[in-house]
Design a protein around this nucleic acid. Sequence first.
RNA 1: GCCCCCGUAGCUCAGUCGGAUAGAGCAUCGGUUUCCUAAACCGAGGGUCGCAAGUUCGAGUCUUGCCGGGGGCGCCA
Length: 577
Amino acid sequence: MRERLESLILQTAADLLAEAGDSEPLAGVTVEAPRQQEHGDFATNAAMVLTKRLRKSPREIAATLIERLGTGDGLIDRAEIAGPGFVNVWLAGGQWHDVLDRILRAGADFGRSDEGKDRKVQVEFVSANPTGPLSVGHGRQAILGDCVARLLEATGWSVVREYYFNNGGRQMRVLGDSVRARYLEQLGKAAAPPLDALQDAEADWPETLDGLPVVFPRDGYQGDYIGEIAAAIRDREGEGWLEEPGEGGFRQEAETRIFADIRRTLDSIGIAFDVYFNENGLYDAGEIDRVLDDLRASGLVYDEDGATWLRASELGLGRDRVIVKSSGEPTYLLPDIAYHREKFGRGFETIIDVQGADHKDQGPYVKAGVQALGHDPDQIEFLFHEFVTLSSDGHTVKQSTRKATFITIDELLADIGVDVFRYFMIERRAQSHLDFDLDLAKEKDWTRNPAYSLQYTHARTFGIERQAEERGVAMPTPEEVDTTRLALPEELELVKKLGEFPEVVSRAASSREPHHIVYYLREVTGLFNPYYQDKDRHEILTEDEGLTRARLGLTLAVRSVMAAGLRLLGMTAPERM
RNA sequence: GCCCCCGUAGCUCAGUCGGAUAGAGCAUCGGUUUCCUAAACCGAGGGUCGCAAGUUCGAGUCUUGCCGGGGGCGCCA
């Protein structure tokens, strides 16, 4: 309906330009629902935009526009000039009734669209290396990536969720060494380093302690999970692994167990990846070498100080970057470029990389790399999110993966549950810092919790249904709802808000901003709860069967939108709370 | 020093393509319940949209500078 009105207005405005001999295309004209209800159902700035080009006053143009629009084939009830030259349009009453009818007929599909046209998009997120449990920071990225993927699915894209990981390299060696050290300590063959030495990088590091060697790496992983993995190995192997290198069985065992934990955590917050992509696959397939050769052929690579450099400064970037160290080992950048070329090879039209703020200025280098290889860098989108800071008792809790002072998703879930977790992780837009109050999170009394109130609005529609059943009233089918019976302003306002849902989904999907869904659902809740509550004006279950069916229809429409919205957020939509 | 993000009500944050009187939740204060679930609703107070210029019919929104907070500027990933 908005589309119909919009095209009508755009066409009329274009006609006015054409008649004035101006053949340039029309730009900047909007048709939107105004904030104030008194400003009509829709408002357009067309008259003000055309002022210069038609060399007439906005109000004069507005008057012409209104005259030309007329009733717009029955779409328009009336139109008025307002303020500096807005044209406010009120739709004919029946239009809103049609909207409700469409929502009811669409049911669970309302809000979905095919604008993605089944094009392939990849969303890569989390991508944490298997060195430890997922932290709350990973949680934000996980929920953000998943919700973006859900939005894209709802708008007709063919989505692949992907997790990229690296199980080689220095990090993993340190991990294996850390496990091995704990294993030796548990068998009494080594001494644990003192706590103060672990916590202070400047402190003295003992070679031996009480006659036992200290084998724990100075920069080792300190979390309890390391000791647990070591204990599992000890229980199974006894002293059989005394000669096993950290890089061997210990590293492997740690990776297997940690990855299993990560997957279980992801599963527990409702996330399933389609692809787990191992960086090693790129080496095995010879992709790294091929990319290096191709980059050399592009002339954007040179050798200096024994290392190989990407001439990124030539592509407008800050500085050149090393892609192969003088040791012959590639830096992260080379496999990253190779990985992205591989993504292009899989035919994705759009590639979305969800990453933390600390990766912000690396994106351009990856883009520069793929551009040098002949791909369109604009097909890659980086979606950066700022950090999650945790606070407790008014103080920020310091987090460090290595020192294991971070709060894991698992710990938080035990306190607040998946739905509340997902809600708080997605409520704010990605580029805002997320200050997560642990005390609030651990507070059991969630009666003031906005996550809860969204779910409750959905549950309330079932409460109404149960109440209706008790009175022997069945929920109506779309055919049984005579939408014209809904005439109260608050009912039309609610219908109007529900009708915006597809647009909200579309905008949230194309801007990759799932938080819009949250705020929209809060608005629906904010209209439906008072409507339900104000029993003096409008009980839903009345003596009038037709009116009751219409209001139950409205209730069902609210249910559809709330259910669809909650599903986009990955939250459950309970029937009873 | 350079680059990126943020700065909006007491707190935490929304604010669509630049649009009319800047919103929500929480908190505070006052009220509402023989009722379709009070896990609710109604009302009130609370704003120099960090500061200053600029762009224009119009700026929380765009540009520049400054201030404050966060992140990044490795042959780490």
